[in-house]
Design a protein around this nucleic acid. Structure first.
Length: 949
DNA sequence: GTATTGCATGGTGTC
DNA sequence: ACACCATGCAATACG
């Protein structure tokens, strides 16, 4: 208690009267009844009344301090002694503009006189005025209340009660805080509520958008008094009280149907989602809420760990089970709507159990990827941390024990990091808790406090899945939450985690915009069944309010950085394997890579995310001709398309504007049944092989491999060879910009575009240099240790794979003619069986080759030589932009060549791109071209490829 | 080599 | 313009 008092005293002492004409320092509360105080945004203080033990929200002018240190004041008119220091007394007096107070009787007596009629047109003429509509019926009809409405003059915060007879009267200086307190008091008196919510605060400026209000239970009660003339009410405060009671904020909704709330007063719920949320709240709050925000009369609950815990229920609220959610942060910090607790009654019941304890919802937070990740750090909203958690002065913070709904106590470290002259609060050590509760990104963690005792308790709400999207047929994201760079699915282990690829989602979204239903159909009807669009989560629960709200809010799920503004209508869930994701990605047709030259390494950057394309199969003929085959979504026939055609989603024969002979479903299929069978069979074989080679690895693994490969290639100069297909390394992460140094932004080369000066000292260049050097050192070190062993292993491996019929072991001229088919399938996955040898030194290989010995093949060397044929190929085919020529790249898999009609499916072009950036080391794509093209003079390429095979 | 820690960065929301 | 905060990432610790 002493500590608390001291802290409060410090707060108070640090402030002065907000009256500019006065400026007197606020007196110390020590020794008086102002047991506690903290600054409000308005400049005043919130105080607690020792007498009644209740929190008292008041804008404290110095006169109040000066005159009412004891909590008692005298009516300025009759001199009656008034206790003004608590909620219980709130409706028994009114503050006067001139200072001082007015008792109920005097207010009543002067009520009529106190309403200057001229105020009416003034208020009504104000743009800031907002007519507030009442009961839910009126909400739906949009008509004003018959009984009473409330006008709020935003300019001075005066409230004017408009009675049924439209005779207004003005309540000067009625503060929203008082109102809320009155409201609470009324509630207490009525005993109608056990769960109470303090209304969130909004700015008065938002009042202009207040659409309506509903009535609560209290409103219904007040209707009994509808015939009363407000001007004859006992006091303006009482009238206001009634008005307050008339304005409950529940627009509960099921669907779009508005319903008046009954027993729980809580923040305005979204008409569409049924949940309170930031923006919607802003537009749908009562004038008291807005007024609250204007003046910020906020009840600040005692902080955990501050010593004795103030128990508001102690005397007057013995039955109060759940207190209001405090909506005030320390000092000026305002709790953002996104952190407003939205604990349901059920959750409260779960937390509180059967005890008589009071649950004070504090705040909640939707877990981000970082929060739910292995790092075990939960970033706390600063305002929340400072408001509701014990104050900490050192970055090390302090241990904090929080109990979960099951009663289990979790021990965290509550600390902060200095950050931009501010602090970043985190709870460390949350991993066990997160895992125990099976929380994932997108789920919501709620923090509450149990009174008495002040014990912190945390609950959670699982993010659930989907909403039906009547227009697009696309289910909403739910358990698949897009968080930061990662696409998460909260429920299914088979999901594809797309790391570093919110751009991918953007692309998908973009594709969805064009072909939403098609994409949906495509996946839903996908024969392979690997791709699914979830409708429900594993719990079978309905769409989570919070999640939907989160989407609805327009926030990018989870992370602010996922600049993926997804409305619920646009949101959809993704559940894809990694490779499936990859095979659906194409560089944006309009994407033009920007190539930066860094120490002779060309790094390609895309400003545009990849597009979401329909699955296609690429084949290459013995003549080197490459085709793309796409299946008609109507007749299921396979049609040939040019390589550079990207089909976003649904495609039918009618869409085939390229080939007039095949633009109808009635047209015969170009491939013979036998050819088609072979192609499809090999396609499936390839898929199986790929999967068996671990292509369903998760993102971190993929990242590691890809990065390593890229780094290796970069180190040895293999990155940067012009002409390397870039399809598999499509885009830069959209949240990154030019200059970003993260690996996401480091792109493989295309040989096109502007180049950075090798001497460039920009951030990205420096970083890349540093990373390359580091990687080079590591590689060299490993090479020196394992080069020989790896070489032997590689040779052995090549010998082992030879019987698989890989044409790579043959000369390019004979690759595709060993069987009767004229189409060759290349499976990039087969390269090294999915393993990239990073440990061969190219110089060693070249040395061996020079000496005519058995060539020791490294991926690096292969890449080095393989790129050249692609250039030639591109030249021959008049290709200039790799971005739009996936076909060419798709042919570069350089793996086992199946002598039969062979495929290079599009997925392979992208399967290694890991967010489209780091698969360059696996650039055997060009090797495939080299071979299949059968027109490449570079024998070394063929030799290398053959050796690899 | 992996995990942890602490700081830096930058997009976005809010004032 | 500023603050917040999600997350990247280098440095450090640990096994």
């Amino acid at each position: 208690m002493a500590g608390m008092a001291a802290a409060a005293a410090a707060l108070v002492a640090a402030k002065r009267c907000m009256n500019a004409a006065c400026g007197a320092p606020a007196p110390s509360p020590a020794g008086g009844e102002w047991r506690k105080g903290w600054p409000l945004r308005s400049g005043g203080f919130a105080v607690l009344c020792d007498k009644c033990g209740l929190a008292y929200e008041q804008l404290v002018f110095c006169d109040i301090f000066h005159q009412k240190e004891s909590g008692w004041r005298d009516c300025s008119f009759c001199g009656k002694r008034l206790h003004c220091g608590c909620i219980a007394s709130k409706n028994s007096f009114d503050l006067l503009d001139s200072g001082g107070v007015q008792c109920v009787t005097c207010i009543k007596n002067s009520a009529v006189q106190s309403v200057p009629s001229p105020v009416v047109p003034k208020l009504f003429s104000s743009q800031n005025n907002q007519r507030l509509f009442g009961k839910s019926d009126d909400l739906l009809s949009g008509r004003p209340l018959e009984t009473s409405s409330l006008m709020v003059d935003a300019r001075n915060d005066d409230l004017t009660i408009i009675a049924k007879n439209n005779l207004p009267f003005m309540v000067k200086n009625v503060e929203a805080g008082q109102s809320s307190n009155i409201l609470r008091q009324k509630e207490l008196e009525n005993g109608a509520r056990q769960i109470k919510w303090e209304l969130p605060t909004l700015s008065i400026g938002d009042m202009g958008r207040i659409p309506f209000l509903t009535r609560s239970q209290s409103a219904l009660e007040s209707r009994r008094d509808e015939n009363k003339d407000p001007t004859t009410e006992s006091t303006t405060s009482e009238s206001l009280s009634e008005a307050c009671l008339n304005m409950s904020l529940g627009i509960a909704s099921n669907g779009n149907k508005l319903e008046a709330t009954s027993t729980v007063e809580r923040p305005m719920l979204s008409p569409t989602t049924g949940f309170p949320e930031g923006r919607e709240l802003t537009t749908a709050l009562s004038p008291f809420q807005h007024a609250q925000r204007a003046r910020h009369f906020l009840t600040r609950p005692p902080r955990v760990g501050e010593g004795a815990v103030f128990d508001p229920t102690k005397d007057m609220l013995p039955h109060l089970r759940v207190a209001r959610p405090p909506a005030e942060g320390r000092g000026r910090n305002q709790l953002l709507p996104r952190y407003w607790p939205r604990i349901t009654d059920q959750e409260l019941q779960q937390i509180s159990g059967d005890s008589n304890s009071t649950i004070v919802p504090l705040f909640e937070k939707v877990l981000s990827a970082s929060d739910a990740g292995r790092i075990g750090r939960l970033v706390l909203p600063k305002a929340c941390a400072e408001a509701y958690f014990p104050p900490i002065s050192q970055p090390e913070g302090r241990p904090l024990t929080i109990q979960d709904a099951k009663g289990k106590e979790w021990h965290f470290q509550f600390r902060f990091w200095p950050n931009n002259n501010s602090r970043m609060y985190v709870l460390e050590g949350v991993t066990p808790c997160i895992q125990s509760l099976q929380l994932q990104a997108g789920d919501t963690v709620t923090f509450s406090r149990i009174e008495p005792g002040g014990k912190l308790v945390m609950g959670f709400r699982k993010a659930t899945n989907t909403v039906s999207l009547p227009d697009s047929q696309i289910s909403a994201i739910a358990n698949g939450s897009i968080l930061g760079d990662t696409l998460f699915s909260s429920t299914n282990e088979n999901l594809a985690i797309v790391s570093g690829y919110s751009g991918f989602l953007q692309s998908i979204k973009g594709a969805a915009d064009l072909h939403t239903s098609s994409i949906y159909d495509h996946h839903v009807n996908s024969a392979d069944g690997d791709v699914s669009w979830l409708k429900t989560d594993k719990f079978g629960s309905r769409p989570d309010e919070g999640s939907l709200q989160f989407l609805k809010r327009g926030r990018n799920i989870g992370s602010k950085s996922r600049r993926l503004s997804m409305d619920a209508e646009e949101a959809w869930e993704l559940k894809l394997y990694w490779d499936e994701v990859q095979e659906l990605l194409r560089p944006a047709p309009t994407a033009k890579p920007t190539v930066v030259m860094i120490e002779d390494y060309e790094i390609e950057e895309y400003d545009e995310p990849p597009v979401f394309a329909k699955r296609s199969i690429f084949t290459i003929r013995s003549t080197g001709e490459q085709d793309q085959w796409i299946q008609c979504d109507d007749c299921s026939k396979w049609r040939r398309l040019p390589l550079n055609v990207i089909v976003a989603s649904k495609w039918t024969c009618a869409d085939n504007t390229i080939d007039s002979k095949s633009c109808s479903c009635s047209a015969p299929e170009e491939l013979t049944p036998k050819e088609l069978h072979i192609v499809l069979q090999q396609y499936e074989d390839m898929r199986r092989r790929r999967n068996s080679f671990g292509f369903k690895q998760n993102i971190p693994e993929m990242d590691a491999v890809s990065l390593d490969a890229f780094a290796t290639a970069a180190v040895y100069g293999d990155v940067g060879n012009q002409g390397s297909p870039s399809v598999a390394t499509t885009t830069k992460h959209p949240r990154h910009r030019a200059g970003c140094t993260c690996i996401v932004c480091i792109q493989p080369p295309s040989g096109k575009g502007p180049k950075h000066n090798p001497a460039c000292t920009c951030n990205v260049c420096m970083t890349v240099r540093r990373r390359f050097k580091t990687l080079m050192m590591r590689k060299k070190q490993r090479q020196s240790e394992r080069e020989e062993a790896e070489a032997s292993k590689k040779i052995a491996w090549m010998n082992r794979d030879e019987p698989e019929g890989s044409s790579l072991s043959r000369s390019p001229q004979t690759v595709d003619t060993t069987r009767d088919g004229d189409v060759t399938m290349f499976d990039k996955v087969d390269i090294n069986k999915g393993h990239i040898d990073l440990n061969f030194h190219p110089t060693a290989v070249r040395d061996e080759e020079r000496h005519g010995g058995q060539p020791r093949v490294s991926m690096v060397s292969l890449l080095e030589v393989a790129n050249r044929p692609l250039e030639n190929y591109m030249k021959q085919n008049g290709l200039t932009s790799l971005a739009g020529e996936q076909g060419s790249s798709s042919t570069c898999t350089g793996a086992a060549t199946v002598p039969q009609p062979a495929l290079v499916e599009s997925e392979e072009r992208t399967s290694n791109n890991d967010g489209g950036r780091v698969a360059t080391a696996e650039q055997p794509e060009s090797m495939a071209v080299d071979e299949a093209g059968d027109n490449q003079p570079d024998k070394a390429a063929g030799d290398s490829a053959a050796a690899l095979a």
